[in-house]
Write a protein that binds this DNA or RNA. Structure first.
Length: 437
DNA sequence: TCTGGGGTCCTAGGACCC
DNA sequence: TCTGGGGTCCTAGGACCC
């Protein structure tokens, strides 16, 4: 029998900040969403203060102030790079690793499971902590759904050990009986309320629900969940991430935007960002969607989206910008204070399988590909936006607010941490650069 | 004053095909 | 009274995840 492990980083964004600011240990810390709008990560101390996940900052400002909570803006360059390091460390333990999200991975141990699973899990925790500075919790079980559940237990009931092993059936039944059904992976608020109405309150009760009934009301997705709770693995490990079928960039602005020209800059910037992701996975898009919206909390509200079919499948930034701006012109209405826009690329296919057009000689050809490759190369080497399209605007006053962002310690030469060694000598950036080169 | 971003999968129903 | 069978594609909407 194979064993799945779910390795999940504790309070990941906060833990990343703490690696580079050790003085934050033991103190309440939160990380905010884009535009510093909501709380998206909390240290244990901040959770204990009653600061909820996703709460708007203006609603908990008093708590933050009263308890001198350390506040950070999101620093995705840092979190993304730290995530990569954590996942790399995990690959030393088994080749079967599925990176499930920025802060969690499934591991699979095939064949005869290692004898001392809990010991192995502790080894993993120690190694990740020592190599990256990030604390993790680990759930062990016969299926992915149970491993997720075990991980939850490892973070709550068994927080001291940081590991929960549900491979043993008796222990599994015991835990399922104590877990609320809405805690199960794949059971959201809607299903949870529905199940409660039908007398199913615990994960154990769900695991014993009749197949036909589950299938009728929760679709085959629910059916899989139930079987997984019974210890029958239905959700395989996916080591190779499937190429994206849709790529979106949508964001609220740092301040409202009223003019079509300025909105055009925003949409062009988002289109360019989405295009880069598209090229990174070696794909082209045949269709895109543009959307604009005013604030949902203010009157009058206006929001609309439109789909634009491109003349041919492409991953060329200028062509995608063109399409996005055409779409924008169709949905723009004068007189509104827009606060959000988005670009969604769809009908995505590998770039080498595109259908050519019998009646047009233009397509995403070799020259365009080479041009974009050069642009991407420059931006990879010299930093994002080292070179960019003027359609995206120069001043960009609509850019998001990030008042409390920490340096991009691990991905920018000019933001490397400065190390001071005992005795007072300062290793400044120049020294570290020299050493690393 | 201030309210996130980026995805996936499934189903039902309509249009259409042979 | 009696009215085929099997299928695909597309879209909108709903549910979920982190």
């Amino acid at each position: 029998m194979a064993v799945f492990a779910l390795v999940d980083c504790n309070n990941f964004y906060v833990s990343c900040e703490r690696v580079f600011a050790p003085a934050l240990a033991g103190r309440p810390v939160v990380v905010l969403s884009n535009n510093d709008g909501r709380v998206v990560a909390r240290s244990q101390e901040a959770k204990d203060l009653g600061i909820d996940m996703g709460v708007p900052v203006f609603k908990c400002r008093h708590l933050l102030a009263r308890h001198q909570v350390q506040v950070y803006s999101s620093n995705y360059a840092l979190y993304g790079d730290m995530s990569r390091r954590v996942m790399e460390s995990l690959k030393a333990f088994t080749p079967e690793v599925e990176v499930y999200s920025i802060d969690e991975s499934f591991l699979r141990f095939a064949g005869a499971p290692p004898r001392d699973l809990a010991g192995l899990a502790q080894d993993i925790r120690r190694r990740v902590r020592s190599w990256t500075g990030i604390p993790v919790s680990i759930g062990l079980a016969a299926t992915k759904t149970l491993a997720k559940l075990a991980n939850k237990v490892a973070k709550t009931i068994s927080r001291a050990e940081g590991v929960c092993n549900l491979v043993d059936q008796r222990r599994r039944e015991e835990v399922l009986d104590r877990v609320e059904v809405g805690e199960v992976w794949g059971i959201g608020p809607r299903y949870s309320a529905f199940l409660h109405r039908h007398g199913i309150r615990t994960a154990r009760q769900l695991s014993r629900a009749p197949d036909a009934w589950v299938c009728r009301h929760l679709t085959v997705v629910g059916q899989r969940i139930v079987w997984e709770l019974r210890g029958i693995s239905c959700i395989p490990l996916e080591q190779v991430p499937a190429p994206k079928k849709a790529i979106a960039r949508s964001r609220a602005f740092g301040r409202p935007v009223r003019a079509l020209d300025e909105l055009g800059e925003v949409v062009a910037t988002y289109a360019a960002a989405a295009a880069r992701t598209l090229r990174q996975q070696g794909s082209v898009a045949a269709c895109l969607q543009v959307s604009v919206e005013t604030s949902r909390f203010k009157e009058p509200y206006y929001g609309r989206a439109v789909t634009v079919r491109l003349p041919f499948s492409t991953a060329s930034t200028p062509e995608l910008i063109c399409g996005a701006r055409r779409g924008l012109e169709r949905i723009f209405r004068k007189g509104y204070a827009y606060e959000r826009a988005g670009v969604l690329l769809t009908e995505i296919a590998p770039h080498d399988t595109v259908q050519l057009d019998l009646f047009s000689s233009e397509f995403y050809d070799e020259r365009k590909r080479k041009l974009m490759a050069v642009v991407d190369e420059i931006n990879t080497r010299r930093g994002r936006d080292a070179i960019r399209f003027a359609a995206g605007g120069l001043e960009r006053q609509w850019r998001m607010r990030q008042a409390h962002r920490s340096p991009r310690f691990t991905t920018r030469w000019d933001e490397l941490p400065v190390v001071r060694v005992a005795g007072g000598a300062a290793w400044d950036q120049a020294v570290i650069s020299a050493v690393l080169h």
